[in-house]
Amino acid sequence: MLKKLLIVVVEPDPDRAQSIAEGLRGAGDHDIRIIAEQTALARRVAELRPDVVLIDIADPSRDILEELALASGPSERPVAMFVDRSDEQLTRSAIEAGISAYVVDGLRPDRLKPVIDAAIARFHMLQQLRAELAATRAALEDRKIVDRAKAVLMKARGIGEDEAYALLRKTAMDQGKRIGEIAQQLVTAAGLLGR
């Protein structure tokens, strides 16, 4: 029987880390460890001697792992090598999903591929969640700023709420901009004018 793969997930956000670990468990019986702390990251990873390290492609700590990928001398077991020595398509898919993987030299592709595929699927899901969250936040921000802009208009022009909103919407349409942008400009201008 094959030895379990030791997979290290470097991820400071506990929810994301759990979600990634869960995705990986679906890909086989692996030993999964999560590192959330950036302090002494290189040493922690080196001590664990993982077969695979997974990390968000935009995580600044990646540059620390890059060093590990090269630090292994001829006498040492290579800590990690880049995944893409073997499979260019897999690398590309991983990069597009926003994931980077460091893989121990000599790990068989048939053992690696299911792990990377599962990680890619999970990162795609997380990417989508993140985009939805950002959209919700932006909508909420827009609503707040539109409320403030309405108040400015109501006070300055002595009009009602519905009329103020209609004015904002018409201006936005005329200028081909989002209503939130127009509202932001109005609130900024009102602030400058001390109103």
């Binding site: 492609i57 990646r62 540059d63 792992l65 990069i95």
Partner: peptide, 16 residues
């Protein structure tokens, strides 16, 4: 805006 030099290299290599 990118977070890591390795990310810059990888995105460039992948054509993103």
């Amino acid at each position: 805006r990118l977070g890591a030099w390795a990310q810059s290299r990888d995105l460039l290599g992948a054509g993103l």
